[in-house]
């Protein structure tokens, strides 16, 4: 396999960590600033896709194997729906987050939003990376001049 340019590889290695950190910031700071599960999920997926583009599909799948990604796709929806069902077990309506702390409703809302945003983020990350894997797994590797 022909390796990409040295500068590209070094810059990618420095960027990937920062991108993942930024994804977590967007995920958990969505209450205070623009962002949330959808955006954070995409940014998180971008970190893995960038690594995959520069170092090859095999290398990125050593970090994040395809079967893990496929489980993540379903896990996020389960976390989201599970939050709602948990609310029902606590004796309130589906997705009534106030039920987590009935004596201080807005605290429960904070936890509920945290859980469902986490669910959204997990599913979006999983779907984006899974689609990239599906494309890249079939793509013949192109040299720089083929474009």
């Amino acid at each position: 396999m022909k390796e990409h340019h040295l500068i590209l590889r070094v810059v990618t290695k420095t960027l990937v960590g920062t991108i993942i950190l930024f994804a977590f910031y967007v995920q958990f700071h969505g209450d205070y600033s623009p962002g949330g599960g959808f955006q954070a999920g995409v940014i998180m997926a971008v970190a893995f896709i960038l690594y995959g583009i520069v170092f090859g599909l095999h290398e990125v799948q050593r970090v994040l194997p395809a079967w893990v990604v496929h489980k993540l796709v379903a896990l996020g929806v389960l976390v989201y729906a599970g939050t709602g069902i948990w609310n029902m077990f606590l004796g309130y309506e589906f997705l009534h987050y106030g039920s987590f702390t009935p004596d201080h409703m807005s605290h429960g809302q904070h936890s509920g939003i945290l859980y469902v945003e986490a669910g959204v983020g997990i599913t979006v990350t999983g779907v984006m990376v899974a689609i990239y894997y599906a494309f890249a797994g079939r793509t013949p590797r192109l040299g720089n001049d083929d474009w």
């Binding site: 205070y32 600033s33 623009p34 996020g76 509920g112 939003i113 959204v120 599913t123």
Partner: peptide, 26 residues
Amino acid sequence: DVPNVVTSILASYRGFDTLGETAVVF
């Protein structure tokens, strides 16, 4: 009690909507 109103609408007031969106992405 969340400063970003977009987040409170998206995740709480319209939680059912967002669950549906997540299911669509899935």
